[in-house]
Design a protein around this nucleic acid. Structure first.
Lengths: 247, 247
DNA sequence: GCAAAAGTGTTGGTACTACACCCATGC
DNA sequence: GCATGGGTGTAGTACCAACACTTTTGC
């Protein structure tokens, strides 16, 4: 951020320090068929060749971390339509030994992608796949921790923001929205109360007039909603108390 | 995070890319005499020479960002006792043009320091001072934004964590604790209700038996408390609704 | 009719707001 | 006494969890 010693700006030596690589890593989550899934890539080379890892890559000289995140995701997974990708900076992981090759500082993102398209490997990734959140083995580098942090962040944001609609198709039923909460939180919610809560929050969802959809093949067709204009939930929709979470 | 192309790990060229500088910047807040203050340094050199800026500096090859943050703060402000410093990663600012000299990616921290000691300039800082939060003019680089983000983060964390005790001396009265909330939030709280709320949250504060302190020179001496073991507030202590904040 | 999913009503409890009021100290 | 700050009581309200219940569809 500031030059050392008495160097004038034009005398500033960009190469005076051991270089840092700056990368991005993405924990992309989705909900499919009531299951929480993560987008992972199989590493094609050492270290951790053959292991699953979060999609990630270098930030280029002209990019911000956010810009790099979108590009890297497109390259490594072959997913073309990222228009509905919700991207959010998580934190930066900077432990000196997190990559055995060199000093790598990684800006991690939590991301959501509804209606998950099939990915293809690309770039350095041998292959790319959606895998169930609960079943991912040890990932490369410190990606287990990044993924856990992302899950916790997303779970927390469901409480006090309208983020859940980012997991849904453009039009969705309240039952589908509830499934998002239940899947991410790993908890069961009371349907009548959930419904009231959502509808009582102005701008959370907006009804699609006259539209309805049969969800389970049986039962009453459910009314359809779109995401409303609001971003925050006031009051919040709290997770049921759990022993696992620090409270 | 991963090598490009077919380079073997040992063939990996650390210097293949335009180097990034990785820095830390700290928004250190305190409350003194009912006023919110920020720890700033005056820049000794271009760019922005003579302007106030957040303390910050390079991350060294063997440091994590957190380690660098503590070292940089000690060097630039001369503050020796950082044992009670509360440090928390805010986010990373990576816009390509945020520093005119070169590509600088900065990991920003929000920090709290109770009972603020007098700082001295040091390192690249011509001087270091505590300045009232409301009166800081335009800062160097994008530090206005970082500072605003830090303030918002701290304000939000007061709602659902025990963070407020990090602004206080080891022993404090409930009135002093309430002042912290009021100062950071810029809002007035109801004293009886605040008191009940704090005492009803298990582990937020613990009474110091028999101890009392005269606060304003007049009035009944107030009982003293220490920080309890809890870190989260359940239920939260919400800011009074305000139009300024997005809700 | 039966099962399944959507939608409505009700009730008791918790927690919060907005006060009024009492207590202990310095001047 | 009076001002100042600490501490307690209380009534009304909002919100929420936990149900029971009705409605609409497929089979």
């Amino acid at each position: 951020m500031r030059a050392k010693g008495g160097l004038a700006p034009e005398g500033y030596d960009k190469y005076a320090f051991e270089p840092f690589a700056v990368t991005v890593d993405l924990a992309v989550l989705t909900v499919r068929a009531g299951e929480l899934e993560v987008l992972l890539v199989e590493r094609g080379q050492e270290p951790y060749a053959g292991r699953w890892a979060l999609p990630g890559g270098f930030v280029l000289p002209t990019e911000s971390a956010e810009t790099a995140a979108r590009r890297v995701l497109a390259v490594e997974t072959g997913i073309r339509d990222l228009s509905r990708l919700h991207l959010e900076q998580l934190r930066t992981y900077s432990e000196p030994d997190r990559d055995p090759r060199m000093r790598v500082v990684s800006v991690a993102f939590a991301a959501l992608l509804p209606d998950p398209p099939e990915p293809h490997g690309g770039g350095d990734a041998a292959q790319a796949r959606w895998l169930p959140y609960g079943s991912v083995g040890p990932l490369a580098f410190d990606h287990d921790r990044i993924l856990a942090d992302a899950h916790e962040r997303v779970g927390a944001k469901l409480e006090y923001t309208c983020l859940a609609t980012s997991f849904c198709q453009p039009e969705f039923t309240l039952g589908e929205l509830q499934r998002i909460y239940e899947t991410v939180w790993g908890a069961v919610l009371d349907r009548p109360n959930f419904r009231r809560k959502v509808l009582a929050t102005p701008g959370f969802v907006a009804p699609v007039p006259g539209a309805a959809r049969l969800t389970g093949g049986r039962g009453k067709p459910a009314a359809l909603y779109r995401a409303g204009g609001a971003t925050a939930l006031q009051p919040p929709l709290l997770r049921p108390p759990s022993e696992g979470r620090p409270s």
